Amino acid sequence: MSQPLLLLLLVCSSQASHFYGTVMTYYPKNTNADGSVTVVIRYKLNFHNCGFNSWTCLSGNCGSETSVQGTVDEESSIWCQTERISTRLVPSNAPFGLVFASNSWISNTKNNIVNWRAVTLVELRNRSDTGQANTSPQTTILPAVRVPSNCQRDFNLLAFDPDGDEVRCRYGNDTSPLNECNPCTPPSVLSLSSSCSLSFSPTISSNEGPYAVQLVMEDFPRQTINLTQTSGSQEEKTTIDAISKIPVQFALRGKISCFDSLDLWLIFTE
């Protein structure tokens, strides 16, 4: 049974030790006369308690950073979601990578995820179809998701791409050159379509509990394009080549009892 995503999300009130997930998006702001680029990066971090956390450079020249951080919402001693707005000045429009990695995820995840690792690939080269720098897909997450474990639930992740690209989702890959998570074991109770639709299957009581969901969202051009760097070099991207990628990670908990969507909405808004 398909339901709007917001009607199915419920903040998890179970005890947790640390990390609940993250999401990042970016958009270019200015290209300067010397070829340098200003890019604005926004990311949300979900933890057991509020605190200061930041991403670090993984690959390429990540430039210099100024940032501000604020608390989006929190439930004392249960969870806290913060959002950080980072402005980076990079020397050129060459792609670069950012990483957020440490330990530990919420305790006792059923898919045995302990350490967290999330990776973003920032692509700023000019596109031949728009004449502008690429912008990542836009999405968001809540601190935690809870679904009734004895009911089928299908829902779509919210996703939008400012460049008009096709947005696709997949599970993270820990054998890729950038190691997108550590490890990337998907939840056994979830199936994911490339269109960013998640399906939760009814499960037995022994599978109830928290899961770490570690997804990657990517943008694909709808026709073959060229990406041009400040130096003049070009790279072709076809409809099967991802342009950029962002992480979408969150905690999911299956719990017995089957509510209808109205019940879940009322509980969430109390």
Rank of each mutant, 00 (worst) to 15 (best):
V72R: 01
A118E: 10
T87P: 01
C12Q: 15
N53S: 11
N156L: 11
Q234K: 03
T120W: 00
S107M: 04
Q214M: 15
G172L: 00
S191A: 12
E123K: 03
S176E: 15
R170Q: 14
G232T: 07
Q152D: 15
S77F: 07
R222V: 15
L264A: 08
N207I: 04
S257H: 11
I243N: 00
S77E: 06
S194C: 06
N226S: 14
C184P: 12
G232P: 02
E270G: 11
S92E: 06
F250W: 02
N182V: 12
E65A: 06
L157T: 07
E75W: 09
R222Q: 13
T175W: 12
T25V: 10
G254C: 01
P148R: 09
W55G: 00
F268E: 13
E75C: 09
W55Q: 02
E235C: 07
P187M: 06
N150I: 01
A144S: 13
T82C: 00
V37P: 10
Q15R: 08
E83S: 05
S36E: 05
E123R: 01
N53R: 09
G51D: 05
S191M: 09
N179C: 14
L266S: 11
Q234M: 07
G254V: 00
T120G: 03
T185G: 03
F47S: 05
W265M: 15
L158Q: 14
S233P: 01
L9F: 08
A242I: 01
W116N: 03
P186D: 12
W105P: 07
F250P: 02
I106K: 01
I225M: 04
V39Y: 02
P247I: 00
G35Q: 09
G97A: 04
S2E: 15
G131L: 10
Q81T: 11
E74L: 15
V114I: 14
M1D: 15
S59E: 10
L58K: 03
T71N: 03
D263F: 08
F200P: 00
Q229K: 12
W55F: 10
F47H: 09
S193A: 08
N108W: 05
L121N: 01
E235Y: 09
S2H: 11
S59N: 07
I78P: 04
L252N: 05
T31L: 10
T130E: 05
G70S: 03
N126L: 06
L9T: 06
V11S: 07
R127E: 12
N115R: 04
P202Y: 15
L98E: 01
N46R: 10
S86R: 08
D163N: 10
F160W: 13
L58E: 02
C184R: 05
Y27I: 12
P202I: 09
